[in-house]
Design a protein around this nucleic acid. Structure first.
Lengths: 168, 168
DNA sequence: TATTGTTATACTCTATAACTATA
DNA sequence: TATAGTTATAGAGTATAACAATA
């Protein structure tokens, strides 16, 4: 009982008792390892974790990166359009934009056509940060995926996940 | 402006103004659709959503289902072991077990070896519910994945996601 | 009347510190 | 002293209602 759980290996310390109590061996995942939802969630957490590490120098979350990418690709759009495309609810998008704007990465511009809406644009700093972020993602993040899965498999994976996201 | 956003199609309503303001057309996802993290997250949300719909009659979340599966597959284990295997922190596991126990799906048994720990076991009702849950998942949930991707692709997907979850 | 951005709010998840009872 | 379960708590993420300004 003085050996920590992480040190114990399957095979040693067969400490079974009369009751159905077991110790030491790694647990059997069983059908769990075949459950799409389970493995999908675990993979997503790992990928986000790695993304955050790669982006530590720029302090960008996956959600923030997606906003910068989308605003850059779609100039002249308002908050509602950007948010809804990303699956972010408008109320929750406000604090997110406050953050990006306070860091001078993005600006809200009151539309002249419709004075209710805010057109979103990246600042020069925002564009520069996005460029650096893309490089970090490509060299540190996505490249590891290629190393792990291979280029062809990585592309097949994206295709399948997109299909699930769009058609499931 | 009276037409709702979801009704507008790319191609009509080319309402461009002098400023870089656009309306109506669907936004360009651009590189976002190639970002693993983005598509992974969207797919995961869709899969969980579908899981919840399929399990509505049993009122089981993906996390609860994973607990029942793991406890059933690993009799005689305690809370810490089950929780940590699932990536659930021990404090957060307490309320989850309170829920399952209050629904008579799972029981905490004070261990005779180590009176600090609670051995987890499924009740008869818990086993019955798990059996029904597995059937629902197989017939309503996983089967749709096969229809969408094909059996071979679905298996390849699980393998790749497991690899990411374990080695990334 | 409807829509944009916003505030307020609530509920779930996740994360950490600290307590108790046992070891 | 260390560990198992627990409590309290705080922070993200996500959800809905409602308000002011504008259409």
């Amino acid at each position: 009982m003085t050996v920590s759980k992480t040190v114990e290996k399957a095979g040693d310390a067969k400490g079974r008792k009369e009751a159905p109590e077991v110790q030491g061996e790694a647990l059997q995942l069983g059908e769990l390892s075949e459950q799409l939802g389970y493995v999908l969630k675990r993979a997503q957490l790992k990928v986000f974790e790695n993304f955050l590490r790669c982006m530590a120098s720029l302090q960008l979350t996956p959600a923030q990166f997606s906003v910068l990418l989308l605003v850059d690709k779609n100039p002249g759009r308002n908050q509602t359009e950007i948010a809804s495309t990303l699956g972010i609810l408008r109320p929750n998008f406000v604090a997110m934009l406050d953050n990006l704007e306070s860091r001078d990465l993005c600006t809200r511009i009151r539309s002249t056509n419709d004075r209710r809406s805010h057109i979103l644009v990246l600042t020069d700093k925002g564009k520069a940060v996005l460029t650096r972020a893309k490089k970090l993602v490509a060299t540190k993040h996505e490249s590891r995926l290629n190393d792990l899965l291979g280029q062809a498999n990585r592309e097949a994976l994206i295709v399948m996940l997109s299909k699930i996201a769009n058609e499931f």
